[in-house]
Every structure is written in structure tokens, then in C-alpha cells.
Write a protein that binds this DNA or RNA. Structure first.
Lengths: 215, 215
DNA sequence: ACCAAAATCTTGTCGCCGTCAAGATCTGCT
DNA sequence: AGCAGATCTTGACGGCGACAAGATTTTGGT
């Protein structure tokens, strides 16, 4: 962070140029998505909130999808940071980093459900090719999971990709099913968030139960 | 199935009433979703395809969301049937039913990506309470997974819910991440579908590796 | 310092969409 | 036969994404 901190939001009444419209669009869009969901997001509404003409956003995001892609890129970056921070703050005991990373993944989904949905929603997925920023950020997150797995079975173990795959899909499925309310439907105990986190932790444990550092 | 098989689609030119509009809306919507994705689905477009006025669908589905909910209910029912059929067709060896159910789950997602997205998309999830038909169908599917898990660890084992939870989240996460193209991004080997299915199978195996029938 | 080019924002327009309202037509029941 | 309700039609309204053309400001080369 440098300069004047947060970007200006509403445009000063008299001025013709906004000055930081793109950043303001992204940050306001994130607020709308968090409060009302991705369905409530419209370019015209954003323009109105920012005191700008209805066609102004088009110069920064040619269509609605490109704005969603930007939000998704931002989300993947934040998720990657959360994962790395969680793993870094974990204790040294075997498996603690993986549990911490898993907690960070699920925590991100539950803390920012709207943002999470944009990241894994149909708009971004329907693109012919994933945008570079998404690719890079997703790869960084994947790397954190792989390292956490290596922390359990040892670096160089040939099962690292396979186990990272299992851990990631488990965490991701748990996050999305929880957000959809389907888990709570089958297992009423999961209504409370701490209980859910405990279940996820135990599921991760089941995955690695039979594995020594180097069998 | 009884009577004349498939419901009439386009309305006969001279007639005022369509006669089976609701069923025609659902089946045409499924086709549109499969071919162009949920984003391309609109009530007016459906009405046009069926040769019916633009406001006719409103009498069967008061708004767009209620149509999506109907599609989701149908999807959960089909997924449940696929799961049950897969498990029923599996051999008797320990674990085969679970693998077959998993294959059915992933197969449904990959065969009907649009439908799958509607089922787990934001529209249905944003509802205050899940509709009854969705609840029932989802419960039936969950039951199949639980039975498949019981087939591995033995009915009555206290770990059944926990392991079913792990299996379901793993399968669901694998399905959605594959559809989003994110798995392929990290593990190029997964570009081919059979390879992906093999990875899923091995991930399931990791989950149950350390478990005997009754330890 | 100057000015042309590019970036940024505005106004205006178009077609499509979901939704509501009011009326026409058909169907089933008594 | 006739009525009530279900089903479909026409018409209208506002919001939206997208496009086009013009106004204003900033930038960069000289």
C-alpha cells in the first residue's frame, strides 16, 4: 500500500474524470457481491453508486464478464495469501500445516461466500482459456497445498500430487456443499461452523491416516 | 412413463392452449442449458421456441428462479437414480459399490455440466429454505453414498457419517473443479477424462486405505 | 510550451429481459 | 347449460448490457 491509502470512490461533483474508476468499480463490486450476491451485480448500478454515467464502466470492463473475471482474479490472489499465511503460522508438528491450510481454505469460502462463488462460478469457467492472473494465483495456492502435503509424507514422495489432489478436492467440495446448505441438510450437526471445521479436519485426517513419512 | 411418451413441444398453430406447457418448458430448458449454459436461459426465449406468447411461462413458473429450482429438483432426482443404478450394478467385492457410486457422481457432472451447475448454482442456494423435492432427492443420493461406505467399513460402524462426508465432499469437489478447468491447470495429466476418473478412484482409495471392515 | 493523440467520461439509442395487469379462450364440474 | 378456474394473449414498464458518437482531460513527443 502506498499513497493515499484507499482509492477514491464517489466522483467529486464538478470533475469530469473520476480518476480511479477502475479500482473503485472493483472495490464497490466486491461490496455488492458480499452483501447481495453476484446476481445483484450490474454495471449500471455500480456506475450509479459511484456517481458516474451508465456507460463509464465500459471503458475499463468491456462487458460484465470481464468485471467478474477481475473479481475472480482478485479472489484467487487473496485465497492464495490466506493459504500461505495459514500454513506459515502453523506449528511444526507433522500435519499441522495441512490442517491450517485446510482451515484457511474453508474459512475463506465461509467468510466470503459471494466472492467465492464468483471465483468458481460459470462466468469464469465458461471462458475459452483461464486468464493469466487467475492461472498464476491458482497455481500459487496449489503450491501451498502441495507443500503442506509434502510436510506430511515427505518431499519427493511420489504420492504428493495424488494426495494434494485428494486434499484439494475434499476441501473444495466441503466448502461449496456447505455454502449450498446441502451438508447441513444431511448432517444437522453441521449447522454450527466450528462443528463443520472439526468434520473437515477429521476428513483430512482420514485421508492421511495410513501414511507414514516414508513408508 | 405412461401415455404418449414425450410431451408435446411446439404448440399446434391453431390451438389456443398448449396442453403440456409446463413439461415442455422444463424439457426445452434442459436442452438449452445443456447446449448453451444456464446464462443463455430466458423465459422469453423458451416461449419463443415453444410457439407461445412471452408471458405464458409465468403461469407455470412465476419467475425465472422457480424454473431453475424445478430444473435443480429434476437434476437431483436423476443424480440419485444414477448413483443408485451405479451402486446396484457394481460387483460384490469390498469397496466396489463405493467406487461405482463415485464414478456415477463424477460421470453425471461431466455428462451434464450445465444441469450440474444449475443444481449447485447460486439461484437454488440463495433460497431461504431448500424446496422439498430437492431435499428428498438429495437425501436419497446421500443414502446411497452412506450405504456404499457401510459396504466398506460395515453397517453400524460409528465412522460411517464421517467417512460418507469425506467421500461426498471429495467427489463433489473433484467434479466442480474439473468442470471449472482448474484441475487440468495444475495437473495436465487430467486433461483426459479416463485419467481423471482414475485419479478420483485413487483418491477414494486413499480415504479408505487404513480401514478394515471392523478394526 | 505546445499540440496532437490517446485516455476517459457523457449522452443517446437499441433490443432483450423479467414482471405485472387486464382481457380472451378453453376445460371441467355440477 | 352454465359457471369457475385454469390457461394463454396482448400490452406496457423499467432495468439491463451493449454500441455509437461526441465532449473533456491527460499524456507524451517535439
Amino acid at each position: 500500500m502506498k499513497g493515499k491509502g484507499t482509492a477514491r470512490l464517489r466522483k467529486p461533483r464538478g470533475r469530469y474524470h473520476h480518476g480511479a474508476l477502475r479500482a473503485a468499480l472493483v472495490s464497490t463490486a466486491l461490496r455488492v457481491v458480499a452483501e447481495e450476491g453476484v446476481g445483484a451485480l450490474s454495471l449500471r448500478d455500480l456506475a450509479r453508486r459511484l456517481g458516474v454515467s451508465h456507460a463509464a464502466p465500459a471503458h475499463h470492463f468491456p462487458d460484465r464478464t470481464s468485471l467478474l473475471v477481475a473479481l475472480a482474479g482478485d479472489g484467487f490472489a487473496r485465497l492464495g495469501e490466506d493459504l500461505a499465511a495459514g500454513a506459515a503460522a502453523a506449528g511444526p508438528a507433522r500435519g499441522e500445516r495441512l490442517v491450517a491450510a485446510g482451515r484457511a481454505y474453508v474459512g475463506f469460502a465461509l467468510d466470503h461466500p459471494g466472492h467465492f462463488r464468483v471465483m468458481f462460478g460459470p462466468h469464469v469457467a465458461a471462458l475459452p482459456r483461464a486468464p493469466g492472473e487467475v492461472v498464476r494465483a491458482a497455481q500459487a495456492g496449489w503450491r501451498v497445498i502441495e507443500e503442506a502435503v509434502e510436510d506430511v509424507v515427505g518431499a519427493g514422495d511420489p504420492r504428493v500430487p495424488q494426495l494434494s489432489f485428494a486434499a484439494w478436492t475434499l476441501l473444495h467440495g466441503a466448502s461449496t456443499l456447505y455454502l449450498d446448505g446441502l451438508l447441513r441438510l444431511q448432517i444437522p450437526d453441521l449447522a454450527e461452523r466450528p462443528a463443520f471445521e472439526a468434520w473437515v479436519e477429521r476428513a483430512l485426517a482420514s485421508l492421511f491416516e495410513s501414511l507414514g513419512p516414508r513408508p
